[in-house]
Amino acid sequence: MKHETIETNAGLLVILTLIVISIGGLVEIVPLFYIDDTVEEVDGVRPYTPLEQRGRDIYVREGCYNCHSQMVRPFRDEMLRYGHYSLAAESMYDHPFQWGSKRTGPDLARVGGKYSNEWHVRHLIDPKSVVPESIMPGYPWLARRDLAYDDIERRMRALRRVGVPYSINEEEYQANVERFGEQTARMLHIDDARENLEAQARRGNYDGDPSRITEMDAMVAYLQMLGTLVDFSQYDEGYFVEFR
């Protein structure tokens, strides 16, 4: 009877609907004000270097997130296949995050260091050459295109505005030294972004061609760091299983 009364009274129905929506909105919004307390600090997690960040940009551009998630769920079958479940702090510098809800291909949260640079290059150019049953398309143009990074400083400044601690002055640089160590702090200084990008590309030689810096260099650099920043042996060691 009460249900019928509400449905036949338009004004009352609108008021009650707004109340329910407001409660639902508060439940979703209020926790965001405590996000700093929710995301725990984890040793090892750092922002992406300039080269890794450009690789991530290309990863997003090519739509890799449509088939590959980057979030290992806290279930036994997930950890047996991919390794330790994902920690919130691992995505704290991702804008946007790459968790995903669909897996046509395997989760990539722990792919860093699992395969050689050469394997990644071959896989990206012709996936079936290393995984015969793969249905992944090839991305051969990554090895042909020179990496565009003239705007890397602007990209880092934009990310800095949403909370990524790239430094622009001595005070911020010293704060990063204390937080991440001197070597990492140098890589996160915006004024030296292009120099750092070039140095990492030459040092890593990710695409196998030291004479130039390609989009393949950036993509492989990004893939090779995924899941490598945290020492998971200190987190629930008994449940950690190597990615295989």
Rank of each mutant, 00 (worst) to 15 (best):
K2E: 12
K2D: 10
E7R: 10
L16K: 07
G25T: 05
L26Y: 13
V27F: 09
V27Y: 10
I29V: 13
L32H: 06
Y34I: 00
D43K: 07
G44C: 05
T49C: 07
P50C: 14
G55V: 10
R56L: 13
Y59T: 06
R61A: 12
E62I: 00
C64V: 03
C64Y: 02
Y65Q: 08
S69R: 09
Y93K: 14
Y93D: 13
D94W: 03
D94H: 00
H95P: 05
T104W: 04
R110D: 08
V111T: 15
V121F: 05
H123L: 11
I125S: 08
D126M: 07
S134L: 00
P137I: 04
Y139N: 11
P140M: 06
R144C: 03
R144P: 00
D146S: 11
A148K: 15
A158H: 07
L159P: 01
R160L: 08
I168P: 00
E172N: 06
Y173T: 04
Q174S: 03
Q174D: 00
Q174I: 00
R186A: 02
H189E: 10
D191T: 10
R194E: 14
R194D: 11
E195H: 14
N196R: 15
N205T: 13
D209W: 09
S211K: 13
I213H: 08
I213W: 09
T214W: 00
T214D: 01
E215T: 13
M216Y: 08
D217H: 04
M219E: 01
M219F: 01
A221C: 00
A221Y: 02
Q224K: 03
M225W: 01
L229F: 05
F232H: 07
Q234A: 07
Y235I: 07
E237R: 14
G238Q: 09
F240Q: 05
V241K: 10
R244W: 03
